[in-house]
Design a protein around this nucleic acid. Structure first.
Lengths: 257, 257
DNA sequence: AAGTGGTCTAGACCACTCT
DNA sequence: GAGTGGTCTAGACCACTTG
């Protein structure tokens, strides 16, 4: 008999209901919430294995099948990664394979191996537009990072990244430069912030003078403007970035379903 | 005991194996293949209900749980749509809700209600580049459609659409003009061609003279170039289109996971 | 051989829709 | 009330990894 989580067959119904909110939370969703809680609490870190399904089932007082369904959803959301015979692991952006999980830029030909060049890393006050997106107050402490990505020596991406100062205390240009691999890997390892999902708004824009010089294109050249809002557990927005992509030798790849 | 499909516990292993191909097909994937077969054969049409899980389980000689897992995957791929209490339905692009399932263009403010303007619909020989994408031969019979999409009276999208002539026999400008809703709905209803998945390659480009006039922007203005290759069952490419999006009042929205 | 996730089954009951 | 999909359980066995 389930002990810790309440049974859906009992009194555990969600009686309070907002507009369109579900009227009923199945047991496996509650288990899913408990697992997410463990991840948020840092019980298991990025890349580590979580307990086996049978262990979790025993801990939560439910059957293996119920744990399995909870883990299935988390695996579908790329929060967890299953490996048959080995266990279930906390997903990480620092994986050797498939670097830059959120970067959809693909070269027209050949493989990718991006070089990074840090331009700037400074403390800033949040501009109103960015504060709103991150659910902060205008003027709150933030960190702004600017950097270039190069492919075969040519600059292809100019990123302007905004992070809440409260979450990324002690982030400096040195630490960013020392670190290998994507920033998101550093954020996980050093600050316990996992990016699990993001929204992008894409537009075509003309390069201004400063951008044109950095990306080595003509002033007025068409560029892809990619505004990304990244979320951690609980749909909490924790990063805003604006990328300008030069699409002469690369394209943005998307899959529709 | 399962009858029609072979049991994975028996001799049904995939013994032939290509590079990286799976060495083992679980029963539910075979069931999934049988359901897809029924869809391809036109046994159930777009928007119609397929048989209940218990019926399918009886037909295929497996348990309900195995059918359920097959349907789960097809629902995750948006090939089928489940509706509790009612049944499982063949997904359609002609739904009242969420028109234009593959169109990711969103207005900066307000709701969308797109007007369509057909520019051209003609028989053509396949250019080499397009034939290659559609796995056809250069010079094969094709139909080329050009059209504009308007939002609040302003042109926002210029589409150039290429379809294999063999699959869309009898497609004329009249039928395209008469039809209400997305083209993909017409393709399903009239030609039995379901688009279930697509890949897009996105770039920023400068408007040429003809495009500028049609979209009412300046020559050289930055536009989003969206090349879409659409697939039907069995990963068969059946449409290539190139859209030019004006992103002054709209943006391309994408979700990353 | 032991432990992990993956598959398959059978049965019970719940939530939702329609008649 | 009957029929649908949705949840949960318990148990058996398979596939894969590691010692």
């Amino acid at each position: 008999m389930p002990a810790s989580p309440q049974l859906p067959a009992d009194t555990a119904r969600d009686t309070a209901r907002a507009e369109g909110a579900p009227s009923f939370s199945p047991l496996y969703r509650q288990i899913k919430g408990l697992i997410i809680g463990g991840l948020q609490a840092g019980e298991w870190k990025a890349g580590e294995a979580i307990p086996s399904e049978l262990e979790l089932a025993a801990r939560f007082g439910v059957s293996q099948g119920t744990v399995r369904k909870a883990v299935d959803e988390l695996a579908a959301e790329s929060v967890l990664v299953r490996r048959q015979g080995k266990g279930t692991f906390v997903a990480t952006h620092a994986e050797q394979k498939i670097q830059y999980r959120f970067l959809r830029l693909v070269p027209d030909e050949g493989a990718e191996s991006l070089g990074r060049q840090l331009l700037d890393c400074r403390r800033q006050r949040a501009p109103a537009a960015i504060a709103r997106q991150l659910q902060m107050r205008s003027g709150d402490a933030m960190i702004e990072v600017r950097r270039l990505l190069h492919s075969k020596g040519q600059p292809v991406v100019l990123d302007d990244i905004w992070l809440p100062g409260a979450l990324f205390k002690g982030l400096t240009a040195e630490r960013l430069e020392q670190h290998r691999g994507p920033f998101y890997g550093l954020f996980e390892a050093e600050f316990g912030v996992h990016m699990i999902r993001a929204q992008e708004k894409i537009r075509a824009v003309a390069a201004d003078a400063e951008t044109a010089e950095l990306l080595k294109v003509a002033v007025g050249a068409p560029l892809l403007s990619v505004e990304r809002l990244s979320f951690t557990y609980g749909d909490k927005p924790v990063e805003f970035r604006r990328g300008l992509y030069s699409t002469a030798t690369h394209f943005y790849r998307n899959e529709l379903n």
